[in-house]
């Protein structure tokens, strides 16, 4: 079993894992970081989105060994202590979540959007969210939350 090292939410982690371990399994099962969810088996729902070296990826479609040496951020690593990231705060303020299951992936994806496009239009936001499925909100308030976070983060 190969030994694997990476930085997760700012902390260096070294573990032995089988090569057929997905990154999401590594996070959930080996590290008990259960904020990252699995909602499908065809890489479409986006509940598992995390950042690897600053970019959003689907951790269900990446082997843990492929993240060797990478800098990984999960939903657990987004807030600064008790202070929510502006995206998290905006989701709360604008009721961008209901059951909360898609939320971690949705937030991580939205954070990456603003890294690429700090002032996205509603259409751009909706298109960016192609890889994140929410069954509760109808996306209306998610879009509002992302717009609000964008405006907050540009200030």
């Amino acid at each position: 079993m190969p030994s694997l090292s990476m930085t997760i939410n700012g902390k260096q982690v070294t573990k032995d894992v089988d090569p057929n371990t997905l990154l999401v399994q590594f996070l959930r099962e080996n590290l008990s970081l259960t904020g990252t969810h699995v909602g499908c088996d065809t890489s479409q729902c986006g509940a598992c989105v995390v950042h690897v070296n600053g970019k959003s990826v689907k951790s269900c479609t990446m082997l843990a060994v492929q993240a060797e040496g990478s800098d990984v951020t999960t939903i657990e690593g987004l807030a600064q202590g008790d202070e929510l990231h502006p995206m998290q705060a905006a989701f709360r303020e604008h009721h961008g979540l209901q059951c909360g299951f898609c939320t971690p992936g949705m937030v991580m994806s939205a954070v990456d959007l603003l890294q690429n496009n700090p002032d996205p239009s509603e259409t751009e936001i909706r298109e960016w969210l192609e890889g994140n499925i929410c069954r509760c909100t109808g996306y209306h308030n998610i879009v509002k939350a992302i717009q609000a976070a964008a405006s907050e983060m540009r200030r």
Partner: peptide, 9 residues
């Protein structure tokens, strides 16, 4: 192609 996360990998 695909979605942003697919495009990143």
């Amino acid at each position: 192609i695909g979605d942003p996360q697919v495009r990143n990998r």
